[in-house]
Design a protein around this nucleic acid. Structure first.
Lengths: 336, 336
DNA sequence: TTTTTCCTGTCAGGAAATTGACAGTCCTCT
DNA sequence: AGAGGACTGTCAATTTCCTGACAGGAAAAA
């Protein structure tokens, strides 16, 4: 099955999984619900869905429900008749009408009012709707694809989202992982954007230096692809030379890398043992060394609690006494 | 007594009870109130009621009171005269008129406004009603069947539902049990849906493997039949082979069954792995199990950060790729 | 097209960890 | 004094873990 992905960049397995599902779902008319943090490229994904469906050639109509004032959203979606409200000078088509035969993409559907949710539900299951202030019932031959960055199940539980609508929408869930979970895709995307912006500005394509790559990779990109795109555009304007050095990167990225948590001892704090992978790398420790350190800490604590009696300490730890001894020997922690 | 049940699937005793009552009630003209969680198939049941009544051949008109905007509901039900409100360009029949001689099904009647409830009550006991903005009184030879997923008694107590209407409606109560109480019906329904979707998509009918059946049976199906239907549609699109293995089932089901290894969740909080010796004992974990859990957490995080590329994840962790693979295999964390 | 690169799974040999068996040291109680 | 109990260290057998070597597959590069 050949997928046409207009602009989706990335090779990471996590993304590949999503695309595999996309390829299967696109040709069917099943309802799809896309989830993922904002800026992860949900719209692009849905565009690809449309492009690979039998509805290509018909309109693709995106609506960002979160970006349109609540009171206007209904008429935006369903249109309105002349005189429906004060400013309705004449009647107007809604997005559903514009999307006839094609796909409508309801982004940020989690932001939608309960009252509007009702109407969407009807459009979804009855395939019909009405313009604001209009008596005529219109038919909707439209594939509805919704997306949200909220946890809809939680919203349902909290009573902010209709349960029936949720189940109607969530036939095929597609989860778009955040950029920081997409590994080396970050570099691919960075290059992609750099190339585009540099071409746009008629300058030779910029390249990330090795240190810059490291920094870019370790930054968590809370704004996801959108944030990355912005940074790259900024670089394409501001960077003087063709090779991007670490120093050229925005403050935020440099700062983040600099915030190395306290020294190795830091793993022991107020009686807790803690760790994140990030720290691990920062400390230049491998998994093994790290686990050893944690183990050592636990051993010490057990010994202390047992008053130095190895027999009991071993029992506390749920290991054989001899094992404990071996471990202590390996670390020269004879006494306590 | 021969029941024609258009599409109702199931043989469980709880359902059989309901159907027995249905069979007795159908031929009479008694008012029926159907209760049951959302997604349990109330509409189907009422259709069957209609089909087995002397009103077959006359219209069956379902109205989802919850899915129609409040302000439109009255005119939807009773119709309106030309000019009744700004957008009422011409007069229009209501659902009651359309249902003349047949059955009208008022789904989610619990959502209905108190003001409308009065009018329904009148239609129910006087058998007459008026169009919106119309003086003419119309007769209604219509069997009214209502349904709700709310606890109407509680609604009455809270003053959100008229007591008199409640007693009028609740002549014959029919309670549709949630899917999780219908035992093996779940499998019958699953097969039923699988067959339908597979036919629709022109692929050989999928079958649930034995383990898959177990899992499906033990899942509580909070979304009831609708949720089950969704899952089966999803499978009919996504499943590669014709036999559905446990692994093909959605995460939610697997997690619920505890197939996912005993969650070391207790230790993972706010992105940190933490533990004190005391907790360790409380959790009934030994040193080894604990370290394993920490390791698992780190593995997952590394894998995530590498976008699922094991090669890179291993490097992040400072271990050999093959080692990582061994560790993952030991834990069945193949995918991610 | 072919070549190269990158990733992946499997496997077997060697390294390391775990544990049971033994043996020795204190101390207490009879 | 001698028996019993609680601890401890050593060691070799067993089990588990780690890694390098291969081989296949898919996608970029040539």
């Amino acid at each position: 099955m050949e997928l046409k992905l207009s602009g989706m960049v990335g090779r990471s397995p996590v993304l590949a999984d999503v695309l595999r599902v996309l390829a299967k779902v696109a040709p069917t008319d099943s309802t799809v619900l896309v989830t993922g943090e904002s800026g992860t490229g949900k719209e692009l994904l849905v565009r690809a869905l449309h492009t690979n469906s039998h509805r290509v050639g018909k309109p693709f109509v995106p609506v960002n429900c979160g970006a349109i004032p609540r009171e206007l959203l209904e008429s935006e979606l369903f249109g309105h008749e002349k005189g429906a409200f004060t400013s309705a000078v004449r009647s107007r088509q809604g997005r559903f009408e514009l999307a006839e035969g094609g796909t409508i993409f309801l982004d940020e559907i989690g932001e939608m009012d309960l009252s509007l949710q009702v109407k969407i539900l009807r459009a979804l299951q009855e395939r019909e709707y009405e313009r604001v202030g209009g008596g005529k019932t219109l038919k909707a031959d439209v594939r509805i694809v919704a997306a949200t960055n909220r946890d809809l199940e939680a919203e349902v539980a909290a009573g902010r989202f209709r349960e029936d609508l949720y189940y109607r929408l969530n036939v095929i869930p597609l989860h778009l992982p955040p950029l920081r979970e997409r590994g080396a895709d970050i570099l691919l995307l960075a290059d992609h954007f750099l190339e585009r912006f540099c071409r746009q500005k008629c300058r030779p394509t910029l390249t990330l230096s090795a240190e810059a790559k490291d920094l870019v990779l370790s930054y968590p990109w809370p704004g996801n692809v959108r944030e990355l795109e912005n940074f790259m555009e900024r670089l394409s304007i501001l960077c003087e030379h063709d090779m991007i050095a670490a120093a050229d990167l925005p403050r935020k990225i440099l700062d983040h890398a600099g915030v190395a948590p306290p020294p190795p001892v830091a793993m022991v704090q107020a009686g807790f043992v803690w760790a994140k992978l990030a720290d691990l790398a920062d400390l230049g420790l491998g998994l093994k060394e790290f686990l050893d350190a944690v183990e050592e800490r636990l051993l010490a604590e057990a010994l202390q609690q047992a008053g130095g009696v190895k027999n009991q300490a071993a029992e506390l730890l749920g290991i054989k006494r001899t094992t404990l001894i071996e471990k202590l020997k390996k670390r020269n922690m004879a006494g306590e």
